[in-house]
Design a protein around this nucleic acid. Structure first.
Lengths: 236, 236
DNA sequence: TGTACATCAGTGAACGCGCGTTCACTGATGTAC
DNA sequence: TGTACATCAGTGAACGCGCGTTCACTGATGTAC
């Protein structure tokens, strides 16, 4: 009985996976706003109402795609990091940035789904917070390891005035939860670099560098090394 | 005759302006994807087909809104700059950044229209390039003035390896066109800071700082002063 | 100044389209005795 | 092992909706003589 019941469940998870795959294809081709249950059903040779056996609404399907996108990006970043020695902090940060950029260029609509303007009429549920954090943790990991290994030389930002107390409190509550041993200043720099990365990737992706910093690799490399120097990441 | 003809023309430009105003309202409320000719016509008490006397298609209306948005942002930045002495380079950069952020928070959908993910099915025509450049020129102006006044101290980035030759060539072709006297390195830093700014604003606007850097002002201030130090902008 | 004509803004109906979601149904798969 | 019943995936028609765009039209405004 258990084995047979399993068969039905297996069918269910398989169809669910196929729906997600088709939805991902639709998303990749037409973007989030163009993603429709009917189109997904069509691609699968099903009738649109059949999808409601698997997803209670279009929004739930969108949520699933968002979770997938964060996961896919985080996986890409983690895979890139895995190819670099854990002690090579500087290179580790750089390959993570490059992986994010490469992923974004390869999956522009998925990138737009998670870091672009929100889909109209859709409100991201709380479940998306944790997978979103996974991406940021990639970068946090690097600076935490570097900090633990005393591989954060006093970067140029070190000589600057102390952090505003309000900012320091916010940062401390982040470190308390995720990275107890990272100094607040380093965390602030990490957020700074992360913002810079996403800004650069968005501008490139949406065509704002066409005609000036185009192709964008040289500027991207320059910007990343600037960030890495700012944070003060060194090799060992 | 001329005066009477003017009357008709004046009516035309007035209605055109009203359509744009209504479209802007729609955009502000429902976002670009939710902007529909019919809704605009409805708000004006017109019949939807009447709009075709003024805009040949929805895309043309969208283009007009995009041009307006760039203009509105550039105006906000310019107004902010006007309140600061031309020699106060550092403050001038900072108020420009703050103006961009404030404008974005006040006009999220217009910001999304120009710096967010592209509207599906819409391809920005060439006319949008020049007004987009106006925004970037706000920042270029600051560093150009600062450079001309020898107010760019050797920032921390100065000790770094020289720019890649490909990047330098790209930057030179930008300076050739817009700011002959800005060193390439400074221009690169300007692009870096601009990307950082937009990344930060996008992340804040789309909720990625909720629960960590929230409220975002303290981090914003920190990030901006970091950038300003990086570029090496000083007061005089 | 008055009349015939041209221009043009706005109307209203219609086109064909695609969408999300509901609902009563069929028929196969699984379950209990 | 066989039979009566329950579950559940998938169907197909229908709902009400809003969209962009076209088109023949009316009637007011402007123009030429």
């Amino acid at each position: 009985m258990a084995a047979i019941r399993m068969a039905r469940e297996r069918a269910r998870t398989e169809v669910t996976a196929e729906i997600l795959r088709a939805a991902r294809d639709q998303l990749a081709e037409h973007g989030a706003a163009g993603l429709s249950l009917r189109a997904v059903a069509r691609e699968l040779g099903m009738v649109s109402s059949a999808l409601y056996r698997y997803f209670p609404s279009r929004d739930e399907l969108l949520t699933a795609l968002i979770l997938e996108a964060y996961g896919s990006l985080a996986d890409a970043g983690a895979a890139a990091q895995a190819r670099v020695g854990r002690a090579e902090h500087r290179r580790r940060w750089l390959v993570t940035c490059r992986a994010v950029r490469r992923w974004a260029l390869a999956h522009p609509h998925e990138y737009a789904l998670i870091y672009g303007s929100p889909v109209p009429g859709y409100l991201a549920p709380k479940e998306t917070i944790e997978p979103a954090a996974r991406v940021m943790l990639l970068f946090l990991d690097v600076v935490r390891d570097a900090g633990a290994a005393q591989a954060l030389i006093a970067g140029p930002a070190q000589g600057r005035p102390p952090l505003a107390s309000r900012l320091e409190a916010q940062l401390r509550s982040v470190t308390d939860e995720f990275a107890a041993d990272v100094p607040e200043l380093v965390l602030a720099q990490m957020f700074y670099g992360f913002s810079q990365l996403l800004g650069m990737v968005s501008l490139e992706l949406y065509g704002h560098f066409v005609g000036s910093l185009d192709p964008t690799e040289p500027f991207f490399d320059y910007a990343m090394s600037t960030t890495v120097d700012l944070i003060g990441l060194t090799a060992s």
